[in-house]
Computed example of a mutant assay.
Amino acid sequence: MTDDFMIRAALAGLGVALAAAPLGCFVVWRRMAYFGDATSHAAILGVALALATDLPVFGGVLLVAVAMALLLTSLTGRGISSDALLGVMAHAALALGLVAVSLIQGVRVDLMGYLVGDILAVSQADLAVIWTGAALVLGLLFWRWSSLLAATLSPDLAQAAGVSPKREELVLTLALSITVAVAIKVVGALLIAALLIIPAAAARPLARTPEGMAAVAMFIGGASALGGLIVSFALDTPTGPTIVSLAALVFALTRGMGAARA
Score class of each variant (00 low, 15 high):
V129E: 10
W145K: 01
I104T: 06
S123I: 07
T132V: 15
L136E: 01
L120A: 13
A100Q: 04
G97F: 06
A125W: 07
A121K: 13
G113N: 11
L136K: 05
S147F: 01
L103H: 08
I119G: 04
Q105T: 09
A100C: 03
L98F: 04
L120Q: 13
L103E: 12
V129M: 10
S146H: 14
S102A: 15
S102K: 06
L96A: 14
R144I: 03
D126Y: 13
S102G: 07
G97Q: 10
R108A: 14
D110S: 13
V116F: 15
D126M: 14
R144P: 02
L103T: 12
A125C: 00
G133E: 08
V107E: 11
A128Q: 13
L148S: 09
S154F: 00
G113K: 09
V99G: 02
L140T: 15
S147L: 03
L111A: 13
A100R: 06
Q105F: 02
Q124T: 14
R108E: 12
V107N: 04
L127Y: 04
G97H: 12
A135C: 05
A95R: 09
A95G: 13
A134W: 00
G133H: 08
L120K: 05
M112N: 11
L98N: 01
S123E: 07
I119M: 15
R144S: 08
G113Y: 03
L149M: 13
I119Q: 14
A151H: 00
G113E: 08
V122M: 06
G133T: 12
F142L: 15
L111R: 11
S154V: 00
L148V: 07
A125F: 10
A128S: 14
V109S: 09
A128P: 12
G117Q: 06
A95N: 07
S147A: 15
A135Y: 10
L103M: 13
Y114S: 07
V122P: 04
L127Q: 08
V129F: 02
I104A: 09
F142N: 00
P155F: 12
I130C: 09
G133Q: 08
G139T: 10
W145T: 01
V137G: 01
S102T: 13
G139E: 05
V137K: 09
I119L: 14
G97I: 04
W143N: 01
V101H: 01
M112Q: 12
T152K: 05
R108V: 04
L115W: 05
L120F: 10
D118S: 15
A121Y: 09
A95M: 06
G133P: 10
I130W: 11
V137I: 13
W131T: 00
R144D: 10
I130P: 14
R108K: 12
A151T: 00
L136P: 03
G106W: 12
T132K: 01
V109C: 06
G113C: 06
V137C: 02
V99S: 02
A151R: 00
W131P: 01
D110K: 08
V137T: 02
A134F: 00
L127T: 11
Q124G: 13
L141I: 11
D110L: 08
L141F: 06
G106V: 05
L98T: 06
L115E: 04
